[in-house]
Design a protein around this nucleic acid. Structure first.
Lengths: 218, 218
DNA sequence: ATAATTTTTTAGCTTTGTCTAAATTTTTAT
DNA sequence: ATAAAAATTTAGACAAAGCTAAAAAATTAT
C-alpha cells in the first residue's frame, strides 16, 4: 500500500467512527487536505483493492480488510506517539506530525517489538486507544467533562481535540491525563465550569470542557 | 527533499568515499537500482538545487551542502540501526531495510533526541561511524583482517560487507564487534587464515578476511 | 588514428497522485 | 414538485520519477 492510500484509509476510518452512514467525499477531502475529485479517484483505487466499498454518490465504507489495515496504521501512529513521549521526552503537543510520518514505516516486526519495548500500552499520550496486533481495542468508559454534574469528580483520561494550542492550554492549567477534576459550579449562561484541579479552582469555558474526556470517580 | 532525492544523494556520498573522481552515472544506477537515464534526470535536479556539481559526461560530486545533507541521512540511518539493535533487540543482519525507511523521517528534533536516548553512539551495529549533528565523523584506525600479519592480534571493529549472509556467518562463528582475533597462520595458496576466536581455532577464507575490519592490539 | 565498444544523454512514453473546470446527481428549499 | 444549491463525478492536464530506444560522447583496442 502506498503512503497516500494509507492516509486515505486512515481518514475514512476516523470519519466512519463518528458516522453510521457512508463517509462523504468532501469529508475525506477535508481530512487529507485534497480536492473532492482526487478523493473520488483514490476511492476507486481502494475499492478495486477491496479495502473499501464504494457506490457512486453514496459515500464509502471500509471492508473488513480495509478496517484492519486502517487499525494497523492507527496502531503504528499511536505506538510511535507513546515512544516519542515516554522515551524521547517529546511534549504531547509535539508528537502528531512526526508520528504521521512514522506510521508509514512498513515492518510488522518493528511495530510488534516497539509495542513490547513500550510495555504494550493501551492508550496514546492523548488518551486514545491503541489497537493490539489483532486489531482489538480496549474501550474505556469515559465522557466529556461538559456532561459532568456539579459535585462529581473525574479523572482526566483523554482529549477530543489534540491541537497544539489546546494541549498547551491544558499544560498551562496543569491538567494532564490522570488529573483529578472536581466540578464545583456550572454557569448556565455560557456553560462554563468552575473546577478544582491540583487543589486550585479555575474556570474553564464550555469549549474546553467539551474537548476533555474524563471518567467518573467517587 | 524527496525520498528519492535523498536516496540518490546517499548513493553519491557512498560512492564518492571510495573514489576521488566524479561518481559515474552507471555506478549510481547500480546502487539505487534504476537505469542510467533515470540517474541523469535526477542528477540534473540535484544540480539545480546545488546539492551536486554536474558536468555532462564527467560524473558528479557533492557540494558542501550536498555533503552535509548526505551525512545527515547516513546519520539517521545509523542511529536508527543502533536503536533497532540496542533497544528493540533486532539482530545486526535485520536492521538495514527498516533503517532504509526510517532514515527518511524528517525531524531534526527526533533524530537529536534519539541520539541522546542512545547515548550519542559513534558507531552503528556494523562498526560504521555515525556523523554527529554537525556532520563530524570519528575515524577509527582499522584495517582489513586480510592485511594482518601472522602472530598479530586484533579486535574486530567493523564489517565491509553488511549482507545478511555474511553477518549470519559471523554469528555462527561467534565473531562479533569486539571479538579478539589472533592470526595463527596464513595459507599462501589461497590466502585463507587460521585464526583464534573465543579460544577456538577456525579457518576463514580470504573473502571473509577481506570483509572484516579489526584494529591491532598487543 | 580510427574503429569498436562502452557510457551517458536525449527524446518520448508511462504511472501515480494531484488539480481545475465542466457535467451530473443528490439534497434542500420554496 | 420543481428550482436552486450543494455534493460528487468525469474529463483532461500536470509534475515527479521512472522506463525504453535512439543518439551522442568518451573510452578502448587494434
Amino acid at each position: 500500500m502506498t503512503y497516500s492510500e494509507e492516509n486515505y484509509l486512515k481518514a475514512i476510518y476516523h470519519l466512519s467512527l463518528s458516522q453510521k452512514q457512508g463517509v462523504s467525499t468532501n469529508a475525506i477531502a477535508a481530512l487529507v487536505e485534497s480536492k473532492a475529485s482526487s478523493v473520488t479517484d483514490m476511492i476507486k483505487k481502494l475499492a478495486e483493492k477491496e479495502l473499501v466499498i464504494y457506490q457512486k454518490y453514496q459515500g464509502v465504507g471500509l471492508t473488513d480488510k480495509g478496517l484492519m489495515a486502517a487499525k494497523m496504521i492507527v496502531r503504528k501512529h499511536r505506538l510511535w506517539e507513546v515512544f516519542l513521549v515516554e522515551k524521547l521526552d517529546f511534549a504531547w503537543d509535539e508528537v502528531h506530525d512526526v508520528a504521521e510520518e512514522l506510521e508509514h514505516i512498513k515492518s510488522e516486526k518493528l511495530i510488534n517489538k516497539l509495542d513490547a519495548f513500550l510495555g504494550f500500552p493501551t492508550e496514546d499520550p492523548h488518551g486514545d486507544p491503541i489497537p493490539d496486533k489483532n486489531g482489538n481495542i480496549v474501550k474505556v468508559e469515559k465522557q466529556l467533562l461538559s456532561e459532568f454534574e456539579i459535585g462529581q469528580t473525574g479523572i482526566c483520561v483523554g482529549v477530543k481535540d489534540s491541537s497544539s494550542s489546546f494541549l498547551q492550554y491544558l499544560d498551562k492549567q496543569q491538567i494532564a491525563l490522570g488529573s483529578k477534576i472536581k466540578i464545583i459550579a456550572k454557569e448556565s449562561f455560557d456553560m462554563s465550569l468552575t473546577i478544582e484541579v491540583e487543589k486550585k479552582q479555575i474556570i474553564i469555558s464550555n469549549k474546553i470542557a467539551s474537548n476533555l474526556f474524563a471518567k467518573i470517580v467517587l
